[in-house]
Design a binder for these strands. Structure first.
Length: 973
RNA sequence: GCCGGGGUGGCCGAGUGGCCAAAGGCGGCAGACUCAAGAUCUGCUCUCGCAGGAGUUCCCAGGUUCAAAUCCUGGCCCCGGCACCA
């Protein structure tokens, strides 16, 4: 189907008003959202996964007779659209190209240099993508987070949170751009151009006093090793700066001094040449030891304080640096002694053992184990350091005479605390790598003294959230198991920022803007209000705290200014749609968005209004496993094509089927055009088949028609069950896998177009509608009443379930399975069988098998033959056949033991006779003969009649291997 | 380290006690269609076997069971998260 047809149906749905939610109190409702996208650029194929899922579910619930509400919005807050606007202003080639591709004229582009305009523009483009995909989004509820009315809602939310005691103010270390203000450091690099993977490293500074009263501050990650310090290192040819803080002066590197000022205040003083310090002696805190100062190239003045405490027993780099020291200096180094013991233990892996056992101090062993011989062997040295640090942290204990031999992990905190008591030790935070903001400035860590926080660590709040999470339906279940842990560890989060961002001014202090995550925690509630604003019935001025108190809480101190009838209408809309049934989002939301969404609901709303479900889907990724980002979009090679091209190339339905069926939600889909190609083919093939199935005709044999109806009964039932349980992939497989297979089998078995096939096709069209709505309408046109999307979901009981028909068909299927390998063998040997004689098991075998089953159930280990014979003895018709019975049990017991259940009892002879023509065609036989095993002697030259079991006839293929059937009354030739 | 997930046939991946030698897809082979290619369709794709069978498989080593890819114990290895990124 081409785009024109798709557009036609989208227009039809719009005209029919299908997307417009109606709070119809006589029906159940379904309300789900997709975590709305941020306005950072144009959407690509990967963004559509959640949207496809959400639309599929809404369409299903609509057809199942529920009122549905499917709103969406755009998250415009924060830096993304500021960055986008800036790219437009800078004429960034990629951005301009994307705009051109979207048909935005140069004149129109100028307007997008304004971040708000850019955000609104991008949001509108998202809506048009949803429309092109056939998503029935209620656009009357569409909102961006920078709209005036949304901001009124956010102000209410924060005042309410404050009233409930959820806010606090306090000091905070924040990543900060000197020009742009606060930025977030994260791998998605929303705010950054470099350094998203950077971690914050917290150094402890250790004060080493010179005899003149000045103090050198060394930075270390392992303060507990100060007892093993033998000297200090400074960078050669460097200089230090004086940092004045609280009436004291410290000597630190030139880079560190301003950092310390940012994080702890004070001021930077004059510069000191290192030459002045080399060879002088400092006092080690806590231990009181006196150690010298030397130079070493291992010091990078940009890292830490540029003053390094040398612990050669435990730091491989220090160990090597000492080896490289000149003899005179080396002679001044005190004895190198280990301060951390690594107990030998049997559960050590081989590589760890190398570090524990052997001559010398641990650092010497680590250097040996990794092959590092010089400071310049950076890779080996890094490995040695990493391994030793880890091992000592996990298993190490302090030497018995130090800190009572406590574990390293505890001693470290202990020493750091002791140092701080002295007043001359500070934490120094810095990034593990260089971090640069979008606009090219260096990002650093700075202390914000009066940061506002949301108190997620508050016990009472946490408790409420935990209680709600316990009730929540979470998909996939693994995330449901993780979630309580995430809530447990969730700590206070800053919720305001200062900087050039888009966002709502913080109502308690408008010099702050509300941080973008914090303004997107309760928005499903606002979606219910927004249509009234869109319709002009409410103005932003109407959205007072009193108004929102009434809508969301049902009560409140103030008097709303809106007309009471309207106020009631909005309230009842909220009462109707809430709670939210499902929040759908990508896996990136597992640790931030979903938790804060849950937290906020838990605090603001009573238990009966809490969200009911979360649905997490994973990503569309590059074959490298990386999430697809905008830079991967292009028209060449393996790149993900722009959405517009994708829709053109594959059509909306193929894209929808692809997203539903390519993988389970908890798996990434690896990008490959071939997958969408095959989705396209599946849609087209199914459409062709359904068209055939709709043709007029007399139908097939009544028994076969009954089978088809029964099979469709199961199909409809399983489809419903799959969707109710959110198993979308299974549903897609039922519609595009099992259903066509059923129809093909029906036709192959001698079925023909007619009422049975037609009603199957009509059911299929309705089943396919939520998944691939365009092709469903196309096929339904003229044969289904009105729009398929507006019709009702098929019910299983529309199709009579005839268990016997199912049993007969699977019987024939099993017979085919038995026949196939042997016929093939004949064909392979150039002697294809000409015909087959079936021998249906004698009636007594059924009884005997049942007895065998009983006997095995009683005692699986006992031989069943005696028990069966005992029961056979009282049946006169079997008494004469004792030998045969015993032989039969002996042969079948092993098989019966492993069979889960007996095959349903059917009239095998009738079933086989009715399928003679089919089996002849299928295997190229000229004749098919069916006989009871008791009567077939003359047709059984190979003597295999007695192999027949109930549900599993014996057979003889003649014409193969030189055997021929004797001529007989039943054989047609 | 802690928390979560996982190791299945050439590849991707379903499968949580028994019709499992293991769905589906990709790749490969053969055939049909075609002037040809492509697309599509059909069959085959662990090993052996001139009759529906047998053998050996689901990371490794043990164990439970009449029966284990599935349960238990131990080991090796991999992935994600560990926070301020809707």
């Amino acid at each position: 189907m081409d785009r024109a047809h798709e557009l036609h149906w989208q227009e039809e749905w719009k005209t029919a008003g299908l997307a417009a939610a109606r709070a119809d109190g006589s029906r159940d409702k379904f309300y789900a959202i997709v975590a709305y996208p941020g306005s950072s650029g144009f959407l690509h194929l990967g963004h559509l996964r959640g949207m496809v899922l959400a639309d599929l579910l809404h369409r299903y619930h609509r057809m199942a007779g529920r009122s549905v509400f499917f709103p969406t919005g755009t998250h415009a807050s924060g830096l993304p659209s500021v960055t986008f606007a800036q790219k437009v202003r800078n004429r960034d080639p990629r951005t301009i190209a994307a705009l051109e591709a979207e048909g935005v004229s140069t004149a129109e582009q100028a307007a997008l240099e304004d971040p708000s305009a850019a955000a609104r523009f991008l949001g509108t483009s998202y809506l048009s993508v949803y429309r092109s995909l056939g998503c029935l989004v209620d656009e009357r509820a569409y909102v961006t987070t920078i709209d005036e009315d949304y901001q009124a809602f956010i102000r209410w939310q924060f005042r309410r949170l404050n009233t409930l005691g959820a806010l606090r103010q306090g000091p905070h270390y924040a990543s900060f751009c000197p020009v742009c203000g606060p930025v977030s450091v994260d791998p998605s690099e929303t705010d950054l151009s470099r350094g998203g993977e950077a971690e914050t490293i917290v150094y402890t500074t250790v004060p080493f006093a010179l005899d003149d009263g000045r103090v050198l501050l060394a930075a270390t990650l392992r303060p507990e090793t100060l007892y093993g310090a033998t000297n200090l290192w400074l960078a050669p040819q460097g200089s230090l700066a004086v940092w004045h803080h609280a009436e004291k002066s410290y000597l630190v590197g030139q880079t560190a001094a301003p950092r310390l000022v940012e994080q702890h205040g004070g001021r930077v003083g004059h510069v000191v040449d290192v030459a002045e310090l080399v060879g002088r002696v400092v006092e080690v805190p806590l231990s009181g030891a006196k150690i010298p100062i030397f130079l070493s190239p291992l010091v990078d003045p940009k890292i830490g304080t540029g003053v390094v405490m040398s612990v050669p027993a435990h730091a491989p780099a220090d160990w090597l640096a000492i080896q490289e020291l000149e003899a005179e200096a080396r002679s001044r180094i005190p004895e190198i002694r280990s301060v951390v013991d690594l107990p030998e233990s049997t559960d050590l892996t081989g590589s760890d053992r190398d570090l524990v056992v052997g001559d010398g101090v641990p650092a010497a062993r680590a250097v040996r184990a990794t092959g590092a011989t010089r400071l310049a062997d950076e890779t080996a040295l890094a490995a040695a350091t990493e391994r030793l640090y880890r091992l000592e942290f996990v298993r190490g204990r302090m030497r018995a005479d130090l800190l009572g031999g406590r574990p390293v992990a505890e001693a470290r905190l202990d020493v750091a605390a002791q140092l701080k008591t002295g007043g001359s030790s500070f934490d120094l935070r810095e990034f593990s790598e260089s971090v640069v903001c979008r606009n090219g400035h260096d990002v650093s860590i700075r202390l914000v003294p009066d940061q506002w926080f949301l108190r997620y660590s508050w016990g009472e709040w946490k408790e409420k959230t935990r209680a709600m999470v316990a009730q929540l339906k979470v998909s996939p279940e693994e995330y449901g198991r993780e979630l309580p842990g995430i809530i447990d560890w969730f700590q206070d989060r800053p919720c305001t920022r200062r900087g050039r961002w888009l966002g709502t001014p913080f109502p308690l202090d408008p010099s702050w803007l509300i941080e973008p995550i914090a303004d997107s925690t309760f928005y499903p509630a606002y979606f219910v209000v927004r249509p009234f604003v869109t319709a002009g019935r409410l103005t932003p001025a109407d959205l007072t705290d009193a108004f929102f108190d009434r809508v969301f809480l049902g009560e409140g101190p103030g008097e709303p200014r809106v007309d009471p009838a309207l106020q009631r209408e909005v309230q009842s809309a909220f009462e109707y749609w809430y709670p939210l049934d499902l929040n759908i989002g990508g896996k990136e939301h597992k640790r931030v968005h979903f938790p804060v969404f849950l937290y906020t609901h838990a605090l603001l709303l009573p238990p009966q209004k809490q969200p009911r479900g979360l649905f997490v889907h994973w990503w569309l990724v590059q074959s490298s496993g990386e999430k697809i980002s905008k830079k991967d979009i292009g028209s060449k090679g393996g790149a993900v094509p722009p959405l517009r091209d994708s829709l053109e190339r594959w059509g909306a339905d193929a894209l929808r089927l692809f997203h539903a069926q390519a993988a389970n939600p908890e798996q990434d889909i690896e990008w490959s055009p071939a997958l969408i190609d095959s989705a396209r083919v599946r849609v087209d093939d199914a459409a062709r088949l359904i068209r055939e199935a709709l043709a007029d005709g007399g139908g097939g044999p009544p028994e076969l028609d009954r089978w088809l109806g029964s099979a469709v009964h199961g199909l409809v039932r399983d489809s419903r069950d799959a969707l109710e349980a959110l198993r979308v992939r299974e549903f897609a497989e039922l519609v595009y896998g099992r259903a066509p297979a059923l129809i093909r089998r029906y036709l192959a078995r001698g079925g023909a177009p007619g009422p049975a096939l037609r009603s199957t096709a009509l059911a299929w069209i309705r089943l396919a509608s939520p998944l691939t709505p365009h092709v469903a309408e196309e096929l339904g046109e003229g044969v289904s009443q009105g729009l398929v999307a507006a019709s009702s979901w098929p019910r299983p009981d529309e199709f009579a379930l005839d268990e016997a028909a199912i049993a007969r068909e699977s019987y024939i299927d099993r017979v085919e399975d038995d026949l196939r390998p042997i016929v093939r063998m004949g064909v392979d040997r150039g002697a294809p069988p000409e015909g087959v004689v079936f021998f249906v098991a004698a009636p007594w075998k059924e009884k005997v098998e049942a007895w065998t089953r009983d006997a095995l159930a009683n005692d699986p280990r006992a031989p069943p033959i005696p028990a069966v014979l005992a029961r056979a003895a009282v049946h006169p018709e079997l008494a004469a056949h004792r030998g045969e019975v015993a032989k039969y049990v002996g042969r079948t017991a092993a098989a019966i033991r492993t069979e889960p259940a007996p095959a349903p009892v059917i009239d095998e002879r009738a079933a086989l006779r009715a399928s003679e023509g089919y089996l002849a065609r299928r295997f190229g036989f000229t004749a098919v003969v069916v006989l009871p095993e008791e009567e077939g002697a003359e047709h059984d030259p190979a003597g295999r009649r007695d192999r027949a079991r109930p549900g599993k006839p014996a057979f003889f293929l003649y014409g193969a291997g030189g055997l021929r059937a004797t001529s007989g009354s039943g054989a047609k030739s």
